[in-house]
């Protein structure tokens, strides 16, 4: 019996970690999850977490989307951009587009040439979609609550960003943790230990980035260094996109994300989750690490990315 069980246990996923150096010398963390079993011929999948978060959003204590996709044959990369996880500090969101993503793209292309599939969350996701018109060669996009228009921040979000976006303070007190829950995991079906671990894995924003974010929320656009802006680039995007939304997202609310449909040249398909059908309203973090994410969110992502022209 034991031998049968051992036979049934899937082989261990191979995960490797490396540093990628940007053109201006910053060090970024790139984590690779090799496909388990027979590798898919489909492009590698690049996963990008929102500001403040990093790899744990996709790879937490043996679970998460990265391993889930790799177990289904996809080559997966999780990149931590400036200010995230194990990467160097970041002082502007614009460097994400102009320096970080080109360096990550180059590193991935050195291992597997051709376009990538992109799964990207929140503001970082919006920046990545903007980069897909220039710096990143992308086949298909899964956008996770990516805001694209002006939205008056809630009182809580404003208070959080105007005091510097100190994520780590959210994990250090019951009051801060309550704020974390409201912003990122409102009413979520999520293991308390996962939420605590996730909150503890965040990094503070720099004052520059939190100011940029607040201004971006208030104006609906972010100017870039090449004379374009995020919105002007989004209008050029022609990649097929699946926009996944949680009803309870308190950081990048769904109402700020849905205008992506109609803004880009490519087809944008929207899927919104709620407690009525899926048993969870899904918020910013629980969309990826909630108890029900593997049952509802991950399969949608996999199906969309499995499509071939």
């Amino acid at each position: 019996m034991l031998s049968l069980l051992l036979l049934a246990t899937p082989a261990e996923l191979k995960v490797s970690h490396r540093k990628v150096i940007t053109e201006d010398g910053a060090s970024l963390a790139l984590h690779r999850f090799l496909p388990l079993g027979r590798a898919s011929a489909l492009p590698p999948v690049l996963l990008l977490a929102d500001v403040g978060f990093g790899r744990p959003l996709f790879d937490f204590k043996g679970g998460g989307l990265a391993r889930w996709l790799a177990a289904r044959g996809r080559l997966v990369y999780v990149a931590e951009l400036r200010g995230q996880g194990a990467s160097d500090a970041g002082h502007s969101l614009r460097t994400v587009v102009h320096l970080d993503l080109p360096a990550i793209a180059k590193a991935i292309a050195a291992e597997r040439s051709g376009p990538i599939d992109l799964v990207a969350q929140g503001f970082m996701g919006t920046l990545a979609i903007a980069a897909s018109t220039r710096e990143l060669q992308v086949r298909r996009v899964v956008a996770l609550s990516t805001p694209v228009v002006q939205e008056e921040p809630t009182e809580l979000a404003r208070a959080f960003l105007s005091t510097g976006g100190r994520f780590t303070s959210l994990a250090s007190s019951p009051e801060g943790f309550g704020m974390f829950e409201q912003l990122f995991a409102l009413g979520a079906e999520i293991e308390p230990s996962v939420m605590r671990g996730l909150a503890g894995s965040t990094r503070d924003l720099s004052s520059g980035v939190s100011s940029e974010l607040l201004a971006w929320m208030e104006t609906g656009d972010l100017p870039l260094d090449d004379g374009t802006s995020v919105v002007s680039r989004l209008k050029e995007s022609d990649r097929p996109t699946l926009l996944l939304l949680g009803l309870a997202d308190g950081f990048t609310p769904s109402e700020s994300c849905v205008p992506l449909r109609g803004m880009t040249k490519g087809k944008v398909q929207i899927q919104m989750f709620s407690r009525v059908v899926e048993g969870d309203d899904f918020a910013h973090a629980s969309l990826l690490l909630g108890r029900r994410a593997p049952a509802f969110v991950y399969p949608s992502i996999e199906r969309f990315l499995a499509a071939t022209p």
């Binding site: 008056e152 809630t154 009803l247 609310p253 919104m272 009525v276």
Partner: peptide, 28 residues
């Protein structure tokens, strides 16, 4: 979960005259 916030916001965006948006949530 019936009139989800983006569905309501769509109406707000469509309105031509003076308007205000109010989101009822603990965060407000």
């Amino acid at each position: 979960r019936i009139a989800v916030a983006p569905a309501v916001k769509d109406g707000y965006r469509a309105l031509g005259g003076p308007k205000e948006w109010l989101l009822m949530t603990r965060a407000n």
